[in-house]
Design a protein around this nucleic acid. Structure first.
Length: 558
RNA sequence: GCGCUCGUAGCUCAGCUGGAUAGAGCAGUGGACUUCUAAUCCACCGGUCGCAGGUUCGAAUCCUGCCGGGCGCACCA
């Protein structure tokens, strides 16, 4: 099973390289004027000081397209390629016979560590966690399916100064009452109450500070109580993840506290390497190329002036652990764009320390913020944050007004939210707008689910495995789109941009709908009917699996 | 001040390893259900691709400058 586009590209590349005298990319793309076009002759014209059309003609003469496609030179020097009907049929049939739908396992498997979701203990999951969780989960699914060894990590915020007040609050109301409050998912209520007490009552605040010190010095009783906070919160996170349909499991929660006993050794190692410098009483590393407000070198503070460790130390311990112990070769950090500089600094220090070497890549998969209707960052601290679980329930409730079945409503509602996020580029901020997400017309998740359900409806009436024969233009267009599936997967694997898969699936659904409008299936005669049913079946499989890779369900019927 | 990022149709967004008339959805107008799910489809309407230069046979795409929005810039994560 071979990727059609890359096969064509490879054949042309040989010819291009022969003509150019050096490795030359044919620059293939889908075309409105043919099935594909190769633009490589145009840039070559200058290099060889010859007419582009002449070069294109020569490439064509040298290219071996036997049994693949017909080609012609067009316009200023484009090579237009039209795939032979029998070749298209053969490849579609091969794809249909392949469980992996034409997508090969990667020939260079990596160990990929994906850090995403990362909620905070005793704090509600809010819209801010939505993107990280959805995008991270999608990347995990796709990379894993492509044949990589993938380890999910949810870097839980389970340590640090806030735990003083949380523990003090827990002690104040009693552990049973606290556990009860947390177990019903009222994390924000608990957190806010603790915060309020901390702000209002100096004695409470002082006791909180002492709790932090005691906790960090290993007080057994406090550790036991802390464990209650962590366990109840994790249980709650799992229910939200379950609602969202995310693959994260309990074993994937690796809290900041996990790195506690490694922090000192990180500092020691950095010191041994001579990377550490005292600055204003703190132990810092100054990676090259980072400057602060005053234009002076900007530090990554590894140990605070009070001797404590902050998140940079944890992040350094984590990156070292992920490389040295987990043997990760590609580390992904699915966190918001505002953390870009911080992560770049962590990567820079990891490089200087010799952990992040040439064969290991660390990448920040950054995404924009979700904004409120006022166009400002929707932050939890600023009060009115939307509880993630409420948003999901609302989405499902709206879906329930359109479909009767509860499971289907869940699939549609959650799918709508996920598709809204995954279908546009992740670099930009976007305004959080329930109405837009849950509009069930147009470019939405339900459009894809609907296309899939329609096909399943046809197949319920009749289906027997058959060979595909392409006759109508709409069938041919659908076949071409189906064969682009491996390319769409590739695109996400190396760009880490899920919206490319979402876009592909959308185009597939459009191609199917065009086919559906112009070609009868069940009412067609014998051979044609069987062939079209096979085409329907393959389309349904690609849609269902593609949606699955996005983390979206594809119900049998709506 | 430095850095990152975004600016494409009234609205929400694709397209950006430079390539043939800049594409979708929503909204608007007009059509299509005795036909496999009309949550659909077809047609029309709608764009100085922020602005100005530059490189090029060719720029939404690359470079420079500017304008505008967002974010980050030492002990919170």
């Amino acid at each position: 099973m071979t990727n059609l586009e890359s096969l064509l590209s490879a054949r042309l590349a040989t010819a291009f390289t022969a003509i150019a005298g050096s490795p030359t990319d044919p620059v293939m793309q889908r075309s409105a004027h043919a099935d594909f076009q190769a633009n490589g002759a145009l840039p070559l014209a200058r290099q060889l000081d010859r007419s582009p059309r002449e070069i294109a003609a020569e490439v064509l003469a040298a290219a071996d397209l036997e049994g693949l496609a017909t080609a012609e030179v067009s316009g200023p020097g484009f090579i237009n390629l039209t795939v032979l009907p029998e070749t298209l049929e053969r490849m579609v049939n091969e794809m249909a016979a392949d469980e992996r739908l034409g997508v090969p396992f990667t020939d260079a498997p990596e160990t990929v560590i994906v850090d995403y979701s990362g909620p905070n203990v005793a704090k509600e999951m809010h819209v801010g966690h939505l993107r990280s969780t959805i995008i991270g989960d999608c990347l995990v699914r796709i990379l894993r399916w492509a044949g990589h060894e993938v380890k999910s990590i949810s870097h839980i915020g389970d340590w640090g100064t806030p735990f003083g007040m949380l523990l003090e609050r827990l002690i104040e109301i009693g552990e049973d009452a606290a556990a009860a409050e947390l177990s019903v998912g009222d994390l924000d209520g608990f957190y806010k109450a603790a915060r309020k007490r901390f702000d209002e009552d100096p004695a409470f605040a002082e006791r909180s500070r002492q709790r932090v010190v005691a906790l960090q010095s290993g007080d057994q009783e406090l550790l036991r109580l802390w464990q209650i906070l962590v366990a109840e919160s994790e249980r709650y996170f799992l229910t939200v993840n379950d609602r969202l349909g995310v693959t994260l499991s309990k074993e994937d929660f690796v809290g900041e506290s996990f790195y506690n006993d490694r922090l000192q050794s990180v500092v020691e190692e950095l010191d041994r390497l001579g990377l550490l410098r005292k600055s204003n009483g703190a132990d810092c590393v100054f990676p090259a190329g980072f400057t602060g407000r005053d234009g002076e070198p900007f530090p990554l503070i590894v140990r605070k002036s009070d001797g404590g460790y902050g998140y940079p130390a944890t992040d350094l311990a984590a990156i070292r652990y992920r490389i040295k112990d987990l043997k990760g070769t590609r580390l992904l950090y699915v966190t918001g764009a505002p953390q870009h500089q911080h992560l770049e600094m962590v990567f820079a220090v990891a490089k200087q320390a010799g952990w992040l070497t040439g064969s290991v890549r660390a990448q920040h998969v950054a995404f924009g913020s979700i904004l409120g209707e006022d166009g400002k960052m929707l932050r939890s601290r600023a009060g009115k944050s939307v509880k993630l679980i409420d948003l999901l329930d609302e989405a499902v409730a709206r879906a329930s007004t359109l479909v009767s079945d509860g499971d289907v409503a869940t699939a549609v509602g959650i799918g709508a939210v996920k598709y809204a996020d995954l279908s546009s580029g992740m670099a930009k901020d976007y305004v959080f707008d329930l109405d837009r997400m849950l509009t069930f017309t147009g470019d939405t998740g339900v459009y894809l689910q609907y296309a899939h359900a329609r096909i399943r409806s046809i197949l319920r009436n009749d289906f027997a495995s058959s060979q595909v024969h392409l006759t109508e233009p709409a069938e041919r267009a659908l076949a071409l789109q189906l064969l682009s599936f491996p390319g769409a997967i590739d695109a996400v694997v190396d760009s880490l941009e899920p919206h490319k898969l979402a876009g592909y699936l959308r185009e597939l659904a459009v191609a199917f709908t065009a086919f559906y409008e112009s070609c009868r299936v069940l009412h067609a005669d014998g051979g044609i009917r069987a062939s079209r049913l096979a085409l329907c079946d393959l389309t349904a499989r690609v849609l269902a699996h593609g949606l699955h890779l996005l983390g979206i369900q594809a119900p049998e019927r709506l």
